[in-house]
Amino acid sequence: MAKAAAKKATTAATPSVGRRPALAGRTTSAPAVKVEVLPPAERISLRAPEASVAALSKALGVTLPKKPKTSASKAGRTALWLGPDEWLVIDEAGNDPLADCAGVSALHSAVGISHRNVAIAVTGAGAAATINAGCPQDLSLDAFPVGACSRTILGKTEIVLLRNAADAFRVECWRSFSDYVFTFLSEGSRDAAV
């Protein structure tokens, strides 16, 4: 029944009404960095005990990372380790990870959060400096290498941070905080050349 419920909720919609993503298309540029809101993506919050990881990895087509602060990516789908039994799965290829998990009988919880989160890309030589305007983590490549990810703080709100490249980060936040987060990153970017 749980699986059925999950499946029903995620059947690809054929909406008669338009989707209005938060902050759609917003972007700002500073000399060393660009901050831009990314298009919508499919996302689930995946919770599972150790014993279910293999089955879920297979179903999702990406190996769920077991090491803290790491992520794994394959074919437009990224699994971010957020906690010892928690992953954020982001699909940017238009496939639905919730549907993929629905067929897994191993113990787990998959909840659709595609609309809960908004993603903002921060790219450029000043990307880390921009985020460090309000994020207290060490974002040097030694401490936060490419592929590293973490839930953390930006200013007065919570974000999930993923490093895509030496000079590129993906910042995920909840929808209603996205205006604050985008504004904060824009402010940070003004001073990121230093």
Binding site: G134, S176, D179, F184, E187
Partner: peptide, 15 residues
């Protein structure tokens, strides 16, 4: 520092 005006505290708005 940055925590002034719109960044003093997050303002949350619904869809």
């Amino acid at each position: 520092s940055h925590a002034r005006g719109p960044l003093f505290d997050p303002t949350r708005r619904t869809a």
